[in-house]
Design a protein around this nucleic acid. Structure first.
Lengths: 179, 179
DNA sequence: GGGTTCATGTAATGGGTTACATGATTCC
DNA sequence: GGAATCATGTAACCCATTACATGAACCC
């Protein structure tokens, strides 16, 4: 319920906004694309779908399937669309999680170029802040804390790389928006 | 219980191996260092500590504190040391999670240089595999899936940066081991 | 005959968060 | 006088994973 929290609830709702799908379709889609590192499990997908249905954010259409279990294709409802819209417009809470970022990236991008850019900029701010904090921590570290330094160094390298990516991506998007 | 799963249970045990601490100390330590992005909550720390105590992996010493609530300082037991040792020596399951990696990094490093290097090499293999998978996915992507491409691109940038870091770090460690 | 894919679901469990509750001390 | 820090803990809840269960079709 927390503002900006990302659950698969919203993510799945976002996928259904783009096109009606069955639970199996969703699983396949997420499995096929390796970006989220690990897609949600079946259990999670199906129960999320049931929950969405209970809240009238989606509807089902059972489609009989030649000699196979019937497919249950879920579509987003008007209420679902609205909920999603509201959710995508509220700012993310201070959450650096990659998973959350990527999920929101997909969702925000499916709304409008402006939302996409706003989301990337927000990420930029957060990662910058994180980067600064890491640097300060490194400097405050006492001698001999080599492991901590190693871990911090790792985090710094990643943050730096991400900032570079965000920067170049934002520039590219301002030159040529996504189709 | 899964081999290689990282829970705070083991992480906390690892911290206690380095020095006895209270729950509050642990919280402060994790809060002070921003590396793990988000430290565990109080609830989690205290209940983990209780669980460790129940399993005889740690002991407590209650230290009365001038006009303050007494501090409960936990120390690792021999059984705890052994459990930790076994755990740190089993290979990580295919888990790309940064959090898991960093936690294990700290733990492995506190054992020996060899363990540390092994852990970094393992990470290297996993990230490489991930990188390859991402590239293949990008190539298999059909036209117009711009958002997916964006997300994949982001993931690729991070993976590339991490590999570079791992590579240079491994080289550096082989030249000059940690003190 | 045996594995893989399609397709759905349930139940148990785990791991963690948030919010709540308490209470003295120190700093502004 | 009021906030922050020190210091502990409990209980409710949420999200997600694992393992289990079912069953037919298709390919080797």
């Amino acid at each position: 319920m927390a503002a900006g929290s990302v659950s698969f609830r919203h993510f799945i709702l976002g996928l259904l906004k783009q096109q009606p799908m069955s639970g199996y379709d969703i699983k396949r889609l997420l499995k096929g694309l390796g970006w989220l590192v690990d897609g949600p499990s079946f259990g999670n997908i199906y129960s999320t779908l049931h929950a969405l249905l209970k809240d009238d954010l989606v509807t089902v259409k059972v489609i009989p399937n030649q000699n196979k279990p019937p497919r249950k294709v879920y579509s987003i409802t008007e209420a679902g669309r609205q909920e999603l819209h509201e959710w995508v417009n509220q700012p993310v809470t201070n959450n650096l999680s990659l998973k959350a970022f990527v999920m929101r990236l997909i969702l925000a991008g499916s709304f409008s170029q402006a939302r996409l850019v706003a989301h990337l900029q927000q990420r930029c701010e957060q990662v910058t802040a994180h980067h600064v904090a890491l640097k300060q921590t490194v400097e405050a570290l006492d001698e001999g804390a080599d492991l901590q330094r190693l871990a911090l160094d790792h985090a710094l390298a990643l943050a730096t790389a991400e900032l570079a990516w965000l920067d170049s991506t934002l520039k590219r998007l301002s030159r040529q928006p996504l189709g």
